[in-house]
Design a protein around this nucleic acid. Sequence first.
DNA 1: TTGTATGCGTTATCAT
DNA 2: ATGATAACGCATACAA
Lengths: 363, 363
Amino acid sequence: MTNEPNVGTEARRPRQDRGTASPSDSSAPTLRDVGARAGVSTMTASRALRGDASVAPDTRQRVLAAASDLKYRRNELARNLRTGGASGMVGLVVPNLANPFYSELALGVETALAQRGTKVVLSNTGGDARREREVVEDLVARRMDGIIVVPTGGDQSHLDPARLQDTPVVLAALPAHEIAVDCVLLDDFGGASEATASLIADGHRRIAFLGPPAVWTISERLRGFRSALNKAGIQPDERLIRWQQRDVASAARVAEQVLTLPDPPTAFFCANSRNTLGVCRAVQRLGSDAIVCGFDDFELADMLGISLRLVTYRTEVMGERAASLLMDRVDEVRAGAGERKPLRQSTIPTALTRYTPLARRAT
Amino acid sequence: MTNEPNVGTEARRPRQDRGTASPSDSSAPTLRDVGARAGVSTMTASRALRGDASVAPDTRQRVLAAASDLKYRRNELARNLRTGGASGMVGLVVPNLANPFYSELALGVETALAQRGTKVVLSNTGGDARREREVVEDLVARRMDGIIVVPTGGDQSHLDPARLQDTPVVLAALPAHEIAVDCVLLDDFGGASEATASLIADGHRRIAFLGPPAVWTISERLRGFRSALNKAGIQPDERLIRWQQRDVASAARVAEQVLTLPDPPTAFFCANSRNTLGVCRAVQRLGSDAIVCGFDDFELADMLGISLRLVTYRTEVMGERAASLLMDRVDEVRAGAGERKPLRQSTIPTALTRYTPLARRAT
DNA sequence: TTGTATGCGTTATCAT
DNA sequence: ATGATAACGCATACAA
């Protein structure tokens, strides 16, 4: 060996020989190692492992054996780099995974994407808008094929694909605000209006509305509530419309106030489950026979000892749909610079579910 | 330009010039594009964006401006390939994200890892052991820095790091079986025994045990139950020990059977929340005054209208701990081929929480 | 059928 | 302070 500048492929190879490397070697074996052990070139090893037809059967066998011996696994990250292709990963950004809404959404996304062999990279923002921005930046830097976001905060400009290297983005649960992205929404308006209509159909005329401070989804529910009343020619009593309750305790307090008015409501429509629970508590405490109706299902709804009708929906379906919309865009991008299909907005239907308490002290 | 074989760097460059590329160009800008636009080499661009000190201030400014103009983001995947470094991603494999136990665990993992800038790649197995194997293989191929698994099924051989290119693995909720991995467990034995002891302290002597078919965690709880009885010199009545109930309905049925025995128990210890709920239902239906105690917290435990004492714990802490154990191993591997620390097994403590129903029909 | 040369986007290294 | 070159692990294009 002379000191000439690098000439020839094997000569300049700085990597240690792995064909006979000790098993405790810490770095993973590469195609080159497999090829060396099988006595073929890196390319032949690559082809054999990919199942390329132009590899002699016995060669393939030797390569497969070598790969198996070395416990070789293709480095998909390197592969994706070379094929200029998709990373096979999608980012999912949610405010709080401990909330069943988001975890069920995540499950739906995972289920739909797993069928395509695409992985989900999870990010929890804790409802912090700044963190959401950072996280999305990071996901783009990691070359996600697309990103699904349940947005926090009003400004969505950081979610605009135009600013994100054209990474497709899909919004879930909230509509897009001044950015060109697809989104999946719940039928907040329809669900609320249907539920309210069912109360009206049962003869209720004085119906209270309790909810948390109005973000978009809540105001849609209030709009649905008003719409149903309006359609029935009922003038809502504004004193019965209360939307400052963030937790069960304050909802219960407000419900008790409302129930002790001179002319109390005969039914409640609650815009989220915390308000529903608060109202249930108040109704039980006061022994009221007001009917409780609310948005959002919750576990044990049949064990509260009180009749309940709830606007329910399948959150996983929302996740699946979001994944589907996203992958359509991903495929579109990968197909080339052709025309983009128009923006899509998908609405997940709701249903009205009635829960009846089980019999008590049956004798 | 002659037709000589490739000579020189710029001459062989097949890539289109991006310095003035149209903004609708679909592929992401690279360091070369940034360098070209700033009038410097790729390396200088790289150094400037990394914050390398050996870059002239005004050069840095030009590079930063160019990067900003092009909306450049470093390709972290390519970077990791070159630096031979960690992918900055960890796999998380759980049976069912819709189960709060797993989603809270996931939240804990995400929270702990986010602080290190490590991302979580999620996989849901649906409790399918075959899928678990596939998923883990895939995660290794995608070069996760480590993998956290809540294992399904008895055989864990596919989770052995020795078979996974030495990818560190941590088990959560279940102990390792014949594989060399760290794990995080819940104090099933301690929690159950403490809860049972509290019933005994209250004077209960006939205590029923209801649970689902015994996997490891459930048999630990049964063992804790028996241990507490034993310690108090109480001989358990085997007819009151029932562990075939997978759902609320069957648990309720069995609880009713037990309650209508000639000599019914005065208290129940339930090994999971479905059995707890079933027992609550039975107790309510029959108007029994038996005390209900159970393992696992659940929402609305304070709204069932029945006194409850539950073995509770913080699932996110388990996730955080799993992440911590895993990253210790990851750092260990990256530090070199030195000695490995001995295996660790971490136990998450439980607490006994009492829920009292709210007052009813207060006047 | 198999191998060689080259490049994906980045950085380590050595030159200048 | 900046640039040229090679390499990370893999795959495309072309040669043999």
